[in-house]
Design a protein around this nucleic acid. Structure first.
Lengths: 414, 414
DNA sequence: ATATTTTTTTCGAGGCTCGAAAAAAAGCCT
DNA sequence: AGGCTTTTTTTCGAGCCTCGAAAAAAATAT
């Protein structure tokens, strides 16, 4: 299990450090990299000249503002956008999108497509995903020989090893090994990621100040999902993507959840739950899809006056609050990002949520718990997939024998 | 934050690998160590001869059974018991115990003491702990110059960095930095650990087959505690020891918990909760201490016939089941060890517990969830503290400049 | 034009791991 | 009994890697 460190691992790991420092910092100089990694100037110099020769990094004039100082000016190091590219595939309810992203993280091509995921047979669903990726590969305007990784994100439960979708609310199909399928089809390493986990990854890159070591991303949409980062690492279950916050039990034997069980947090706070409560249909009413537009007008009515609509949001807040309280008992309070269409109605949810948290173990620190909202989840999911694919590539570049487009194999070519 | 690997870290880490391989395997030969660590024979040979010269390891004839083979017989490597020693201090309700453990893990001295933790003023509580440790240090029969670490375990919440007790049910005092106090008093590095976490650590060492990468240790005693190991690592909260399973919310606004809040799992499954339900005192009755003997006779009455006693255990099972269900939603199902006096009554708890889990996200795999019981928590806690202290020492031995009793400083002495 | 400052590269030293070969220590076989 | 085989352990030289110091490079300040 635990394995010793070989001599050549040293270089590999330190190369990884340098690349990740560049990806994180933008255009750091060699001196800055030496400072953040703790390695000596000589080592950084050697590694970065290798990486430049291999076409992974490029030198670029640093920000002009610095050149006011005297002394030899710093030379910024940047990721070479042409080093390679990655592809993201995001599958959500009735919607499929794909994007090609260069090594520096810029989107260079994309396609989006509506489809009826809920009623599509298995083969057709897989076929659509494969086809949309194939169209990218066959695009004559696009040089995609260099696609080094595909990261697919899906609403639903995936396995720990990021190979397969195990279960998803958007389709009756289960256990589709999308990662294996894409790998077999295109000969490119692929992973299958959970949407909320990717949201968390994206937040970490978007706002590393606020979302660094410990935070929670909660998707408030048709269902309730969560991506959790603890001690800087994405948290996953032991077998699945885990973090099924929406299916923690709020009230034993309570409202009917989309998952078929009773009393889940989602059965009070999912869009369908808010909807059926607002319409006073009872807690056993069959979950129905509610459009984003309908949810927005529901929120508007709830803001207009204190009727059953507002009460429905209150119930959602209560469920989320007690759920978070239980979660905080386990991991201690942490900043929360609320994402998705109902995050836009967080003003209606927050009072009851805070009141509920105050009655739980999280209550001691209820003031220090911060909430941030982001109504649109899809861009986050795609960004997360992109960063995930890119950091995988960053790591793979050190594995000896991996050919980088236009680059050498890792040995000195000089 | 992330730091590059220096050249000398290499040796340190590989020394760590070797020591940990020896601690885990008992008396492995150099060849076996090479196999498990993946390092070359030459490296293992060099490192182990260093460690032997420094007095950390000793050679010992291997198990005789192997000598049937032909070829040069393997020489077993073992931890040198005299290399150093560690001390454990366990503070629980009305009970304080200390033990000195040699480097190989054998107890070489101990003392136990009853005291009224619940009513002791702060200074006296600290004083008792310091005094019992001092008596070990002053014992003329004991050569404790070599005590390299103190690990203290306490029932209650500790901070992430294992420095202080933040809150404990056994005393009204809060925020006692026991680790700092012991370090200042005796000049020996110390840590302050949570009791349930130490239970988990001990289980990992006791039965590495069953409890390796992912498992849950739950303390069923006056309160409900949890130690959680995920992916081989002890799980802690972001600020505290975390894993306060007992204070996840079972029923919002429900029964009165010892923590002052309502509806916690513990308010249904803690000894005091089982007791007041059995006595039909109502869910708001003030929590009272119940002796282990009383709990055992309560369990006996519950087994004798289906009255309020049995119903109380049923309620406890239900709360634990729904709590575990919520936990399993987050981390996926894993083996559970039930520890503490009420673990001896697990036969009364299990049916309702399983029924509850079946109604939760954990239900899909309810058959694969295994329960194991261990009525006595104190030996486990002490064992966990000992192993924790010893593995700390294992790691510290590589820090340059650390003097090991009778050993060299890490340079070749030859 | 020279001095100063800061960044980057170069170069030799020291350490570490590795593979191959040698040495050591047993049982096996005639 | 003595040589042979087998297995474990040690020894030795080669190849990398990082480091510190010094040199080189590239700008501004005087």
């Amino acid at each position: 299990m635990s394995v010793g460190i070989r001599h050549d691992d040293l270089r590999r790991r330190n190369r990884a450090m340098v690349i990740s420092a560049v990806r994180r910092a933008g255009q750091p100089s060699r001196t800055e990299i030496a400072a953040t990694t703790g390695l000596s100037h000589s080592t950084i110099s050697a590694i970065s000249s290798d990486l430049i020769q291999e076409g992974i990094l490029t030198e670029s004039k640093p920000n002009e503002a610095v050149s006011l100082k005297r002394g030899r000016p710093q030379v910024g190091l940047a990721l070479n956008p042409e080093a390679t590219a990655v592809m993201t595939v995001v599958l959500s309810l009735n919607f499929l999108s794909v994007a090609v992203i260069d090594y520096a993280g810029q989107v260079i091509a994309e396609e989006q497509r509506r489809l009826d995921t809920a009623i599509m047979p298995r083969d057709e669903l897989i076929g659509e995903c494969v086809a949309i990726v194939r169209r990218r590969f066959e695009d004559p305007d696009l040089d995609v020989r260099g696609v080094a990784r595909i990261a697919m994100g899906i609403q639903g439960i995936t396995d720990t090893h990021a190979r397969a979708m195990l279960w998803s609310p958007i389709t009756p199909q289960t256990d589709i090994a999308f990662a294996d399928i894409l790998e077999a089809e295109f000969g490119v390493p692929a992973t299958m990621e959970n949407d909320c986990n990717m949201m968390a990854v994206a937040l970490q890159w978007r706002d590393p100040e606020r979302y660094r070591d410990d935070f929670i991303a909660i998707l408030l949409s048709h269902g309730i999902g969560m991506g959790l980062v603890l001690k800087g690492e994405l948290f996953t279950g032991t077998h699945s993507s885990g973090g099924e916050f929406g299916h923690m039990i709020h009230r034993p034997g309570g409202a009917l959840c989309r998952c078929g069980r009773r009393g889940c947090v989602e059965a009070y706070a999912g869009n369908y739950a808010i909807w059926r409560n607002a319409k006073q249909m009872g807690e056993d009413a069959e979950p129905v899809d509610v459009s984003d537009a309908d949810m927005r007008s529901l929120a508007a009515r709830a803001r207009a006056g204190d009727g059953p609509e507002r009460q429905a949001y209150r119930k959602a807040g209560e469920a989320l609050g007690f759920g978070l309280g239980s979660l905080f008992a386990l991991i201690d309070p942490a900043p929360v990002a609320m994402v998705g269409v109902s995050a836009a109605a967080f003003d209606l949810i927050e009072p009851a949520l805070r009141e509920a948290i105050a009655q739980t173990a999280g209550g001691q620190h209820s003031k220090s718990i911060s909430f941030d909202t982001e109504p649109n989840e899809l861009p986050l999911i795609r960004e997360g997939c992109a960063m995930r694919a890119l950091t995988f590539v960053d790591q793979e570049i050190f594995a000896p024998g991996v050919q980088v487009k236009g680059g050498a194999t890792g040995k000195n070519v000089a």
